[in-house]
Amino acid sequence: MPTQTEWETMAANLLKAELKRKGVTYAQLVEKLAEIGVAEREVNVRNKLSRGKFTAAFFLQCLQAIEVHDLRL
Rank of each mutant, 00 (worst) to 15 (best):
H69W: 09
I66Q: 05
K32L: 05
A39G: 08
T25D: 14
T3Q: 14
F54K: 02
A34N: 08
R51P: 02
C62K: 01
A65G: 03
L63N: 03
A65K: 09
F58T: 03
V38S: 08
Q4D: 12
R72E: 13
T3K: 07
N47A: 11
L73F: 07
N44V: 04
A57E: 10
E42V: 03
H69E: 13
Q4S: 13
M10L: 10
T3V: 02
A39R: 05
L19F: 00
T3E: 15
W7R: 15
L33K: 00
E40T: 09
I36P: 15
V45K: 07
E42C: 04
A34E: 10
R72W: 09
I36N: 13
L73Y: 09
Q64C: 06
N44W: 06
E31Y: 05
V43W: 14
A11R: 15
L33T: 01
V68Y: 00
M1R: 13
Q64D: 14
L29E: 11
A56P: 15
T5P: 07
A27E: 12
G52M: 10
S50T: 04
E18L: 08
F59N: 02
R46Y: 08
E42S: 05
R21C: 02
F59D: 08
N47D: 15
L19R: 04
L14S: 11
N44C: 10
L15F: 01
A39Y: 03
T5G: 10
N13L: 11
S50W: 14
V24T: 04
E31R: 06
K22A: 11
Q64K: 10
L60T: 01
R51Y: 11
R51A: 02
R72Q: 14
A65N: 09
A17P: 03
A65W: 15
Y26F: 08
C62S: 05
K22T: 03
I36K: 00
F54I: 03
A34W: 09
V68R: 00
F58C: 05
T55C: 12
A12N: 05
F58I: 01
E40P: 15
A57D: 10
T25N: 12
T9V: 13
T5H: 14
V45W: 09
